[in-house]
Simulated scan of single mutants.
Amino acid sequence: MIEMVIEQRRRSLGGGLEVGRVLPFAKRRMVGPFVFFDHMGPMDLARGVDRSVDVRPHPHIGLSTVTYLFDGELMHRDSVGSEIAVRPGEVNWMTAGRGITHSERFEKARAAGDHLHGIQAWVALPEADEECDPAFTHLAGDSLPTWDHAGVRGQLIAGSGYGLTAGAPVFSPMVYAALTLAPGATAELPGGYSERALYVAQGTITLDGRTWGAGQMLVLGATAGAIGSEAGARVMVLGGEPVGPRFLYWNFVSSRQERIDQAAADWRAGRMKLPDLDDQEFIPLPEDPARPG
């Protein structure tokens, strides 16, 4: 059932913020439309934490970013005018399309301290939708389909699975869900998609006669199955239908290399609008210390 195991690799985002990067991986670039998968934390942020830990304004094209938190709070601002905090069990779904910029800041942590733990994934848009208008959708916890049965609590973040459909504006067939398993519980894994994976965010699970732990992504075959957990676990289930190969550079995703090059040139030249409520700084293009204009 398990086709590949991907271990997270620790990456610094600067300012003391570190993530576990899972996708893309050299031997497995995507799972369905999922082209990027970062595990944030778990980590404690002290009261008064320096602003250098914030993720300053930066651009995206050709994808939707999906932010989901287990613990903590992030303040999101973007170039379509959004300003909203994402909290545990909520979803920030931002569709970049032809271009969007946004920032993520730890304002709650600066005021009172915080414990951060969550996942940010990127979903590649189909070629026909790569240049769609940018948009942002916030889904509060009570608007996400949920279930609680036999020691398994689940939230459907996006797409369709477990007999449910989420409200996130997806562009291709996919499933993305968060499961919490109580000690001794067994959870079903949905079939119906040609590519699937699960990621252990916390605790341990058993599958194919082995135990797997936090920081491991298991790429699965298409056949439905089940996982167990002796001590309890948090697991992300993801998958869908492939949208074709993608080029990826920095925060840009596209089916065409020339579009990536254009986006980089636009950011370097200052042609991409910064967030309406956070336009006083930005992250330069990698190895590009300043942006003219």
Rank of each mutant, 00 (worst) to 15 (best):
I100V: 14
G32D: 07
M4N: 04
H102E: 07
K108L: 14
G221F: 08
E83N: 12
G221I: 04
E3D: 10
R87H: 03
G215D: 04
A111H: 10
D54S: 10
A222I: 03
P169G: 05
A109W: 08
G72Y: 04
D266Q: 08
K108H: 09
A178V: 08
P284R: 08
G203Y: 05
G154W: 14
G215V: 13
K108M: 10
A150I: 00
A140Q: 09
Y68P: 00
L181P: 01
T67D: 06
S52H: 12
A226E: 15
F25C: 09
E195K: 01
T211S: 07
G270F: 01
A166K: 03
I205K: 00
G184S: 13
F37W: 12
K108Y: 07
S103T: 04
E104T: 15
P88V: 10
G239N: 09
S255A: 15
V22L: 13
V237L: 02
G228T: 03
G209M: 02
T186C: 09
T180C: 06
D261M: 04
W250L: 04
D133A: 15
M1R: 07
Y199D: 08
Q155M: 06
V35T: 11
F106I: 12
L238Q: 06
V175C: 02
S194C: 12
Y193G: 05
G293D: 14
L164T: 02
L116W: 13
V91R: 07
T95I: 02
S64F: 05
E287T: 11
A231S: 11
K273P: 01
I84N: 15
A290T: 15
P33W: 04
L156F: 09
A168L: 14
E281F: 06
H138M: 15
E230R: 11
D54C: 11
P134S: 04
E230F: 09
E7V: 08
E241F: 09
